[in-house]
Design a binder for these strands. Structure first.
Lengths: 209, 209
DNA sequence: TGTACATCAGTGAACGCGCGTTCACTGATGTAC
DNA sequence: TGTACATCAGTGAACGCGCGTTCACTGATGTAC
């Protein structure tokens, strides 16, 4: 790959951004974080492998940074889709479709969000705090807000219904990635079915079914 | 590891079974198929790495065989749980719980079923054929039967509802593995919520909520 | 019954590979005196 | 104004590692004549 000109003095942080750009771009090509090597990323950035260690302590730190980026991308993707919609119900629908579209069109990014495994289990079973900065919690809170705009329900009910929606969305997205052979009904029908049973029929309609 | 006595003449297939046993056992320990190497498996089996090639063309073939085993284990696990239950509704519940329990207690086996990626997308959106031998399809058909025993519905409705249940189950299982930090309501409440909205309230009860 | 041969279930050494990481270093640029 | 020095943004060679796979082989056992 092309050699990269050295950053001017005092702007060493530029390389960090470049490396993340390159890594994210490559992840969209290979679709699997395990196939991204430090050597491949630095090579494409036009820099020696060891240069990466000026900005990341090790590979884990790089992967964590990539993961943050991908979660933010997911959140924006869904939020953008929701912003265009008129009423709350259409908005929730649009967000659901956008969630599935993100997983379908950026499988590598989606996978890195949810495929890394085995952290600590949480003790409680409560919604995430409103002031969280965890990218994954923010995605969920956006969804919960969208559900809350559609139905009247207690905070607890809202939480539970939202988790069912989220797990179903993730389940569909993940199953289609994992085993594209597996038969699932058409996305719109499936979403309509999910919505119908979870948030009730559209006033004056059959919910699209 | 201990050296394995050579199989008697004509019983070379024994090693194949041994290798699969060992590989499945190790998968339950490391929980990630990518961390299972041919060298590690053959070492634990007490055999040289090259011996594996007498029974599997390459690593992919080994992984496929492991995957079949794990799907069958999942299916049995769920079926066994369902067999003990009395009425159809309790049976469906027990199967749902068993599905989640399998994913929780055998994360490596569960993951290998659903984590391998990027086959061909199916053209249609129809239920799997009744005479299929695909392990994944059989798991789904069992579920569909259990749902069918609970509610009156057309074959098409049954299919769609079952896919929502399956995607939700897989979504919950997968999210808990991928990000144990993520908050989900208690399993029983979540299942009850899922059942309530999908198959209607228990006759004469509040569905456990 | 003896013996040559084929088959079977493996072995063991070697291959080339790409990986993450370390470490001594370089050369340009800014700063202190 | 000149020069010694510190700092910064990297380089480049090397490390040890475990991996999947190949290939020529071995030694026990069965079979044909």
């Amino acid at each position: 790959m092309a050699v990269r000109p050295r950053s001017p003095r005092g702007e060493g942080e530029r390389l960090r951004a470049t490396l993340l750009d390159v890594a994210t771009e490559m992840l969209a090509e290979v679709n699997d974080i395990d196939r991204l090597s430090i050597r491949a990323v630095t090579a494409r950035a036009g820099v020696s492998p060891s240069a990466l260690y000026m900005h990341f302590a090790d590979k884990d730190e790089l992967v964590d940074a990539i993961k943050q980026r991908c979660f933010n991308a997911l959140r924006e993707w869904v939020a953008d889709a929701g912003a265009d919609a008129g009423d709350p119900r259409a908005r929730l629908f649009a967000m659901g479709k956008a969630y599935l579209a993100f997983a379908r069109e950026q499988p590598g990014w989606y996978a890195v969000c949810f495929q890394t495994r085995f952290g600590e289990l949480r003790e409680d079973n409560l919604p995430p705090a409103r002031d969280t900065e965890d990218a994954d919690a923010l995605v969920f809170l956006d969804l919960m807000d969208a559900v809350g705009a559609v139905i009247e329900a207690s905070e607890e009910e809202l939480f539970e219904i939202s988790t069912v929606i989220w797990t179903a969305l993730h389940g569909r997205a993940s199953l289609l990635q994992a085993m594209p052979v597996c038969p699932l009904p058409d996305e719109d029908r499936w979403l309509a079915r999910l919505a119908l049973v979870l948030i009730g029929p559209e006033p004056g309609g059959a919910g699209g079914l």
